[in-house]
Amino acid sequence: SSQSQGISSSSTSTMPNSSQSSHSSSGTLSSLETVSTQELYSIPEDQEPEDQEPEEPTPAPWARLWALQDGFANLECVNDNYWFGRDKSCEYCFDEPLLKRTDKYRTYSKKHFRIFREVGPKNSYIAYIEDHSGNGTFVNTELVGKGKRRPLNNNSEIALSLSRNKVFVFFDLTVDDQSVYPKALRDEYIMSKTLGSGACGEVKLAFERKTCKKVAIKIISKRKFAIGSAREADPALNVETEIEILKKLNHPCIIKIKNFFDAEDYYIVLELMEGGELFDKVVGNKRLKEATCKLYFYQMLLAVQYLHENGIIHRDLKPENVLLSSQEEDCLIKITDFGHSKILGETSLMRTLCGTPTYLAPEVLVSVGTAGYNRAVDCWSLGVILFICLSGYPPFSEHRTQVSLKDQITSGKYNFIPEVWAEVSEKALDLVKKLLVVDPKARFTTEEALRHPWLQDEDMKRKFQDLLSEENESTALPQVLAQPSTSRKRPREGEAEGAETTKRPAVCAAVL
């Protein structure tokens, strides 16, 4: 046999249950609850290399294929790409003598399909299967379609040439079993990697079954959420508030809700932002270029202005709740996480202390139980975000031990490091100062900020419009641009040419 590394010779191994799959997660993409704000000051410096380099560890398999027929071997997927077919160049070659004697062998292509993985959001991997055969590759009886790919989820059954000719079961060793999710959700989405997690739940990458488009699904544990919100009269209202707010909003710089499922837990389906959180971008770069800050901040102002015009105060604006559309420097941003939002009543007064301390406005800290506050709290938070983006460190921090965090904020005395700000323009610093004003009545509004000289930049605004146009074009394009080929190089076993392929839609398939 010419099988590559990772293939075992026996096809009769006992199949494990899916609970053996491991679970991976990374930083929070968007969480309903406010958790302790991640610290920006503690960015690790590059460490000196050791005298002796450690040995390379043996790579762990990321997936496993269990053979369902004699003549096929099990495969431990270690590499990122595997070709399957009769050709000797394939990493998994159909060359077992037992297999060659079967009637089905002649229906398999020289290069029938490939399984591979690509880097997705949060640097996690996504597994795909890609059909290159004349007679078809099927996943859970659905045709992939020649020249098309679809994501592979845990426990997928792979069939060759005929939908009933099941050859492998695919085990993704990095994700959960699909069966743990409600059927209504599974009918519409293929669940994938964990993108982030918080005290009350997690955010998962998923794929729409009909279109193969990526989405983010925010899962909120009702049990954990009820415990964490025990002081509230009705904890469920917080989730329902977020859903109702998101459904009503329609702005290019605000995250869109696509679906909602109320089962044992809450499942909020949101558009996916491939670039992750602004927080991670700031930490990764230490600070952002001023031109990049301007492009992002302009969009934040437009989003918050839209919220305020619609009578909504976000109340928890922070870099973790600003998501980026891509890994590119120039990209769209979207505001997310409306769990603490407040729809303005007639009095415009709110007395609930919520939000993240580092970003809270002075009037929030001094008015607990005594007075109210209004939309100006969001403008203060925007000032803190702009400060961080321009400088790479927070204006107020618990680690300045000589003054408490509350006193720093209520006095408006931010930590100004001259040598850092020497590289920032006077106009940018002036806008920061106009937003970090203790008196909410004297603080800049979103309208005033948008009129500030720093943002009178036609090149930046043109760039934003171009990015918007690109997004609109990409969302308007159909996901499947061509029909699967019906040509046949070899006959199917026991049926006429093209008899099955043309009847089945290529579900969740995307043209390369």
Score class of each variant (00 low, 15 high):
residue 416 F to H: 13
residue 254 I to W: 09
residue 459 D to A: 08
residue 493 E to R: 00
residue 358 T to E: 05
residue 300 M to L: 09
residue 257 I to R: 14
residue 423 E to A: 11
residue 254 I to Q: 04
residue 405 L to E: 03
residue 280 D to T: 05
residue 312 I to N: 07
residue 252 P to I: 13
residue 299 Q to P: 05
residue 314 H to I: 03
residue 470 E to P: 06
residue 284 G to H: 09
residue 356 T to I: 00
residue 286 K to D: 11
residue 512 L to D: 14
residue 458 E to K: 14
residue 430 D to Y: 06
residue 375 R to N: 12
residue 306 Y to W: 04
residue 439 D to L: 00
residue 480 V to M: 03
residue 307 L to E: 06
residue 344 L to S: 04
residue 254 I to P: 00
residue 487 S to A: 09
residue 384 V to S: 02
residue 364 V to A: 10
residue 378 D to R: 00
residue 296 Y to H: 14
residue 396 F to V: 12
residue 433 K to A: 02
residue 332 L to V: 10
residue 299 Q to I: 02
residue 276 G to K: 06
residue 295 L to F: 11
residue 502 T to C: 03
residue 361 A to K: 05
residue 282 V to H: 04
residue 324 L to G: 13
residue 302 L to I: 10
residue 280 D to G: 07
residue 246 L to V: 03
residue 423 E to H: 15
residue 307 L to G: 05
residue 360 L to P: 01
residue 269 V to S: 06
residue 285 N to I: 10
residue 410 T to A: 04
residue 465 Q to L: 12
residue 413 K to L: 12
residue 334 K to N: 14
residue 353 L to S: 06
residue 464 F to G: 01
residue 448 E to W: 08
residue 355 G to V: 04
residue 375 R to E: 15
residue 272 L to N: 15
residue 345 G to Y: 04
residue 267 Y to F: 10
residue 458 E to D: 10
residue 311 G to E: 02
residue 278 L to E: 01
residue 489 K to G: 14
residue 364 V to E: 05
residue 247 K to P: 15
residue 369 G to P: 14
residue 249 L to R: 06
residue 277 E to M: 01
residue 336 T to N: 13
residue 354 C to N: 00
residue 359 Y to M: 04
residue 280 D to S: 05
residue 431 L to W: 00
residue 305 Q to H: 13
residue 349 L to P: 15
residue 364 V to C: 05
residue 254 I to Y: 00
residue 382 L to I: 04
residue 288 L to W: 13
residue 316 D to L: 00
residue 496 A to S: 10
residue 379 C to G: 10
residue 292 T to S: 06
residue 403 V to A: 12
residue 416 F to G: 00
residue 300 M to S: 08
residue 495 E to T: 15
residue 288 L to A: 12
residue 382 L to K: 03
residue 511 V to A: 12
residue 334 K to G: 09
residue 500 E to C: 15
residue 253 C to S: 09
residue 425 S to T: 12
residue 359 Y to T: 02
residue 261 F to Q: 10
residue 416 F to C: 10
residue 501 T to Y: 15
residue 292 T to E: 07
residue 269 V to G: 13
residue 395 P to K: 01
residue 336 T to A: 04
residue 243 I to G: 13
residue 503 K to V: 02
residue 411 S to C: 12
residue 372 G to F: 14
residue 383 G to L: 01
residue 486 T to P: 00
residue 303 A to T: 13
residue 300 M to A: 15
residue 247 K to G: 13
residue 357 P to E: 01
residue 447 E to N: 12
residue 369 G to D: 05
residue 320 E to A: 01
residue 314 H to L: 03
residue 289 K to S: 08
residue 405 L to S: 05
residue 283 V to W: 03
